[in-house]
């Protein structure tokens, strides 16, 4: 089992990458390769051109841009590096916990944040975490640069808002988002499997234990990772405790869920509710008042 033939390109500069993308009709970007390589080995995809961006300069850094209030993460930062970054942990404490669920330590040594976001598996952890944190993605073609809010990134099942002539360059997170607690849980039959469902949440709780802001998202439940604005709204102004979390859990169960040969939509909805409640429990323990 191996890939069909292709033309191989290994640009060293972003400009060269973008000009290659502009030139070819049928090209695939090879980032960490932990999803594309299996798909090529099994011949699910047979691109005419493979553009390997592992040598492209300037895509593998994490740096705090204090002036803009952003933490800037290069698209080629490996999952292993994400887990070890103190700067990222400060802006986004759930990262080590969530990324530990991505594959295994051997695949995390290769897999990248940009690859996960562009592959956009509905059950993947990184798109969920970035959606929760209102990440902004920088997407570039040979002629244009633009920003895409994570909320607008997932157009449909495994279809991100990026054209064939564009590359994801950078992911920016708020440097000091001010959340007081976060939670991330997922349910899979075996360690390292894609989750059947996952949930993440962020809470901002004041010193009277009243929720000021909440962000809740679920993965693996719908076609794309999904924020739950109704459940979030139910929490605001409420004490951070079981009754409010139960109400948010009930709201989460109303999500329009996927059904496949393995798990029904009703089962996924039920899991969404259970996992949201657990994640909220974690997030409230993460506060100074919980």
């Amino acid at each position: 089992m191996k890939s069909a033939g292709f033309r191989y390109h290994d640009p060293q500069r972003i400009d060269d990458l973008l000009s290659l993308l502009g030139r070819f009709e049928d090209a695939k970007i090879l980032a960490g390769g932990q999803s594309l390589m299996p798909m090529m080995n099994m011949r699910f995809v047979q691109p005419e051109h493979v553009i390997d961006i592992n040598g492209v300069q300037g895509l593998d850094g994490i740096h705090a841009d204090a002036a803009a209030g952003k933490l800037r993460i290069g698209a080629m930062v490996r999952q292993k590096t994400l887990m070890q970054s103190a700067a990222l942990r400060a802006a986004c404490p759930m990262v080590p916990q969530a990324v530990a669920h991505v594959g295994h330590f051997q695949t995390r040594a290769r897999g990248t944040i940009g690859g996960s976001l562009c592959h956009l598996d509905p059950a993947a952890e990184l798109p969920l975490v970035m959606l929760l944190h209102d990440a902004v993605l920088t997407v570039q073609s040979a002629t244009e640069v633009h920003q895409v809010d994570m909320a607008d990134w997932a157009l449909a099942y495994m279809l991100p808002a990026i054209s064939p002539d564009e590359a994801l360059i950078e992911v920016a997170l708020p440097l000091a988002p001010g959340w007081t607690g976060s939670g991330f849980v997922e349910f899979a039959r075996r360690h390292g499997d894609f989750a059947i469902a996952s949930a993440g949440c962020l809470l901002d709780v004041d010193d009277r234990n009243i929720i000021r802001r909440a962000a809740i998202a679920v993965g693996g439940v719908a076609q794309v990772p999904t924020r739950l604005p109704e459940a979030e709204a139910l929490l605001v102004g409420q004490p951070a405790s079981a009754p409010a979390f139960a109400a948010a859990s009930d709201a989460a169960r109303k999500i329009d869920a996927l059904s496949d040969a393995y798990y029904t939509a009703a089962y996924r909805q039920r899991l969404a509710g259970v996992l949201v409640e657990r994640a909220l429990g974690q997030a409230s323990k993460g506060t100074d008042h919980g």
Binding site: M1, G33, Q34, M37, N41, D52, N54, H104, Q106, R110
Partner: peptide, 26 residues
Amino acid sequence: EHGACGACTVLVDGEAVRSCLMLAVQ
């Protein structure tokens, strides 16, 4: 040969990686 079994793991610059999920040119 799709990254699930781990039998093909080798060290690349000291990191354990799946050799089936990396091209030889890389």
